[in-house]
Design a protein around this nucleic acid. Structure first.
Lengths: 141, 141
DNA sequence: CGAAGTACTTGTAAAACGCAAGTACACAGA
DNA sequence: TCTGTGTACTTGCGTTTTACAAGTACTTCG
């Protein structure tokens, strides 16, 4: 039983987190962390899309400030820094999966493997669980 | 049975559609179309976020070029233009819903209604169906 | 100790954006 | 028919952001 103003229909959600989703490089860094096992500054820098070093430094700082990633000096190699997704960051997986699905369906430039897209359609939960398990495995050491 | 290079773990998807997801204003326009029933240039312009008119014109043009929205002169008011989501555009709903979920969970500035978030968690399909039905209802005239 | 690796910082030119004003067409009333 | 208003843009320009190149600081390795 809703009688809304003309500014707002029967459902009226959403206020975006624009610094996260409205920025190209932020999403690419999260993608690299989530799917490509990247952890070091130089690895992000080496992505095909070619992020500039000053922009990367800025985005990593914002992501840490917003609690999406966590930063740690590599204990075994103290000139390196390890970046990891926090639980809040890992919880972005469903968003990335839906972007992957849409991208794979409509974008000819998508390079998502067919097996991945198929499993995404058939058993999304299992796929998500596997991705998260891989993250755990990589980070627990 | 996969043995990948170190550039690519056991799963290795994703190539983003960066012009769509990596841009703040593009996502906001899609949000307004999907959830707020907006159809006219002036309505997008009036969003709280305050998009500039030249940027709005640019984004609408890109969205139409990419087949995400469709443009039509309003038959009953020929100085007005109606913008609608295409099927490809409507298929972005799952992405927006996941963004809404994450945003509602972690962003204190999120203004998504609790009832919406609850239904999103409990019966995502029904919620999605309702949103799409509302779009159909609004566009079939 | 010197060279190479890693993570940044700084400077500068190019690009994108924000803001204000202006244009073009449709419509409604005098 | 003329005038004013509504709607959808376009244009110009100053500001901000980005891209590219170079430089700095700390660490590791031989």
């Amino acid at each position: 039983m809703e009688h809304n103003s003309d500014r707002c229909r029967s459902h009226c959600p959403i206020n975006f987190v624009l610094e996260t989703f409205g920025d190209k490089w932020t999403l690419l860094v999260i993608r690299d962390l989530m799917f490509h096992g990247k952890r070091h500054y130089g690895e992000f820098l080496a992505s095909d899309e070619g992020i500039s070093t000053n922009i990367l430094a800025d985005r990593l700082q914002r992501l840490e400030r917003d609690g999406i990633i966590e930063k740690e000096v590599d204990p075994s190699h103290r000139s390196k820094v390890i970046y990891r997704l926090s639980p809040k960051g890992r919880d972005l997986l469903p968003v990335l999966l839906e972007i992957t699905r849409w991208s794979g369906k409509y974008d000819s430039k998508s390079n998502a493997p067919k097996a991945f897209l198929t499993e995404l359609q058939k058993d999304r939960r299992r796929l998500a669980a596997r991705v998260l398990a891989t993250l755990d495995e990589a980070d627990d050491r």
